[in-house]
Each structure stands twice: as structure tokens, then as C-alpha cells.
Simulated scan of single mutants.
Amino acid sequence: MRLITVQKVNIVKSVCRTFSLSSRKILYPVTHVIFDMDGVLLDTENIHKKAVSDVVAKFGKIYNLDLRYRVLGAPEIEGAKMVVNELQLDISVNHFIEMVHKIEENLLPHVNILPGVERFLQHLHDHSIPFAIATSSSKESYEIKTSKHKDLFSLFNHVVTGASDAEVKLGKPAPDIFLTCASRFNDKPNPRKCIVFEDSPNGVRGAIAAGMQVVMLPDPLLPKELCTEATIIINSMNDFCPEIFGLPNIEF
């Protein structure tokens, strides 16, 4: 397999936007792209943070950063259990989820696409690069979040909604959802030929466990020590240089 050396990456960086790469990382060319959805394609994380914060505040609690980052990327039910148990909320996990959903249902249908996403997805589509979604959301939640952007999301080869998919036995940071997503491309690529876009440490660990390279778009407040496992780190999809992974380049 052809490797992409750090020296070549440094040349590309001179004409691309800034990204972070460990000098110990070796990049491999890829043929397929897998995206997480929340915090990567859609600006949903702030909505979810507000909803959870509002619910726990009713019990005199605070949704602190440490807890938030451990919940980030986890399946909904597991994240809810963490919040209810660690904050010792006098409420069932299911009732907590219902309260969060009630706040979110008025906001999520209007969620915006994150910067650079639309251009990059259209670029992949124009160059016939297969791409799909691997989200921990349920199918119902996915439909609500994407309702404003149906044309854009119709470009995806397929979508795996982890909370509703029988093949996804374990949620992130387990590799199940990424392996399932890769297996549903028509040509069933080797996981090493897939690159994943993630915003959460849980998602990054799951993709690595699946044998895939990972581009991380972390929350600006996420501690740096929680971002060290990703292949590269970027601030925005506008900063991504596809050619460092052997994909067609984008004209800036």
C-alpha cells in the first residue's frame, strides 16, 4: 500500500489551511469516507448541550464540561444514564430523555449545516467518492435533524443510525457502527481504506478500533489531551485537505 509521508504532508500544508498532525503518524490513501453527524455535519451539539443543561438545572444541577465530554458521541441511552447517575437526578433515565427531547424538538428541525460541509460533500459527490453517515442517533432523530436539508443528505450512499440499527450491538467507542457502515458500501472496502470524520473522543476511539484513520473536529473547549488519538485535527471542514489522503483536491 502506498504511504503518504509526513514530508509530503508538509508540502501540502504549505498550500492548504492549517491542521495538526503528529510527526509519528503515517497517512494512508483512502477510497471511502464516513461521517459522524452531530458536531461534524450539523451544528446540533449546542442545542443538545442547552437541552440537557436546562433539564438538569430543574434539579439544581450543572451539566459540567467533564461530564459533557464523556457523554459526547455516546449512544443516547448511555449518555442519559451517565447524566442521571452522576448528577444523582431524582428521575428515571427514560423520563430524562423525554424531557430533553421536548426541548430539542422545537430547535432541531432548524439546525444549520456546519461551515465547509456542503462544499466538501458536493466535491465528493462530483468525484464519485462513496460517502456515508455513522451516527449514534436514532432513525427518528436523524429524520428530524436533517428535515431542513433533505437535498444535501440525499447525496449520501447510506446512513447507519446506531440507536435504531440491529447490526450495531455496541455504541461508540466500540467499532461496531463504523464496521457496519463500511460493510454497506457496494464494494465493501477494507476498513483501512475508509476515513472517518468525528468530533468526539468516543467516536475517534471507535473509528480507530475499526482500523480506520480519523479526522477530528473537536469542540474548541475540549482539552487537548482528549484529542491526541486522531490521525489529524482540524478546526473546520474548510481546513481539510483531501489530497493528503489520496482524494481529489479542492480548489480554495
Rank of each mutant, 00 (worst) to 15 (best):
P189D: 03
E225P: 01
E98P: 01
E251P: 02
L152N: 07
E105L: 07
I232K: 08
I195W: 03
P248G: 07
K224W: 14
K25F: 14
L121V: 03
S20D: 15
A174W: 08
F252H: 13
T161V: 00
S200K: 05
N202C: 02
L21R: 06
S14K: 13
F197H: 06
L155E: 10
S138N: 06
I244E: 01
V117C: 00
S154H: 14
E118F: 07
P75V: 00
V56M: 01
T146R: 06
I177A: 09
K102P: 00
F59H: 15
K193A: 10
L87P: 01
D165A: 10
F197Q: 03
M237P: 08
A134L: 05
K25Y: 14
E167P: 10
N186A: 11
E45Y: 00
S147E: 09
Q122W: 11
C181V: 10
S154A: 15
P223S: 03
K139D: 13
D66I: 03
D199Y: 02
A209W: 01
C181S: 15
A80L: 03
K150Y: 00
S200N: 07
T5K: 09
I103V: 11
G203P: 05
I113C: 05
L179M: 09
H127L: 08
L21C: 09
R24I: 09
S136C: 07
D187Y: 04
V215G: 01
S138P: 03
L21E: 04
K148D: 09
M82P: 04
K102W: 08
P29N: 06
A74L: 14
I26G: 05
I113A: 05
I244C: 02
V100Y: 05
A80D: 07
C194W: 08
N190W: 03
S154Q: 12
I144L: 14
A74S: 11
F178Y: 15
I232W: 06
K150W: 02
K102A: 15
T228E: 10
L67M: 04
P189C: 08
A134R: 04
N157W: 12
K8A: 10
G206Q: 09
F252V: 11
F19A: 04
N157K: 13
E78W: 01
L27W: 01
V30G: 05
L65W: 11
L21K: 07
I208N: 05
K139W: 13
L124F: 13
K139F: 15
C227I: 02
E225L: 04
F59R: 09
V168K: 01
S138I: 02
L170G: 00
P242W: 00
N94K: 15
L155M: 15
L72D: 08
E143L: 13
N235G: 12
E198S: 09
G73A: 06
V56Q: 06
L89Y: 09
L89I: 10
P220K: 08
T180D: 14
L107N: 00
V196I: 13
T31S: 12
A163T: 09
K8I: 03
